[in-house]
């Protein structure tokens, strides 16, 4: 088996008395769509935050491309998230005062790109997610499903290696959720990005290549066990 792109081993994380993770093992292979399932409160989001370097686990290691995220400084992890990762959350992640196009172009601009080329790239991504006509609207003026598609475009615009999606369809109805999942997985597969997809809905998880289950902060990853 090839070396995984991103692997967390024996991750522990507590919030005060709450043990959100108690020894989780996960491996994400390049380009795969990995569903993270489990009942609510089981530690899915915490696991995702740890893997993405948003939260530093109390113990354990997270290896990404030969480096350990746990050992990196805040600034280094920030930079890594900016360049190598993309994020889609349940809702409300778009900056309300920027237009959809500017929202999508933002990661590129933060990476130092000039406005014109950044917005041209952003427009291409909006078109790929079938919301090309929403570029000049503000997030407050578009529907939830459209907003999530804009968010997916923003997550993918900087050519990330991994996209982290935490309940990306949680606030959508089935049809819109379906559409967003299709566009997300298609686009990610097209771009060769791996997706870590946190969801408790089996129908959403069915868009994955593989699933793991988090229960009481522990993970059963059949791959790793093998």
């Amino acid at each position: 088996m090839t070396e995984p792109l991103l692997a967390g081993r024996d991750l522990h994380k507590s919030f005060g008395p709450t043990e959100a993770l108690r020894g989780a093992d996960v491996a994400v292979r390049a380009g795969e769509v990995l569903a993270v399932m489990g009942p609510s409160g089981s530690g899915k989001s915490t696991l995702l935050h740890c893997l993405a370097g948003i939260v530093r686990p109390d113990s354990g290691s997270i290896r990404y491309q030969g480096r350990d995220l746990v050992e990196m400084s805040d600034g280094e992890r920030s930079a890594l998230r900016r360049t190598d990762f993309g994020f889609v959350f349940q809702f409300g992640q778009l900056v309300p005062e920027l237009t959809c196009l500017e929202n999508v172009a933002l990661p590129l601009r933060l990476g130092g790109a000039k406005r014109k080329p950044a917005e041209a790239r952003a427009r291409q991504w909006l078109e790929r997610l079938e919301v090309g006509d929403l570029g000049d609207r503000r997030p407050g003026d578009v529907s939830g499903g459209q907003g999530q598609r804009v968010a997916v475009a923003r997550a993918l615009v900087s050519d990330p290696k991994v996209v982290f999606a935490d309940e990306p369809t949680g606030a959508l109805d089935s049809l819109n959720g379906e559409k967003v999942m299709r566009l997300l997985t298609d686009a990610a597969r097209g771009a060769g990005a791996a997706v870590v997809l946190v969801t408790h809905e089996p129908r959403v998880a069915a868009h994955s290549d593989r699933e793991i289950v988090v229960r009481d902060g522990r993970v059963k990853d059949l791959e790793l066990a093998a």
């Binding site: 948003i54 920030s78 990762f85 993309g86 959350f89 900056v95 933002l106 997550a155």
Partner: peptide, 18 residues
Amino acid sequence: ERRRPLAALSAAGVPLSV
């Protein structure tokens, strides 16, 4: 008011300084 987008931006690696 912008708690969520700000948190999302920070999660996506946007430095606090920006």
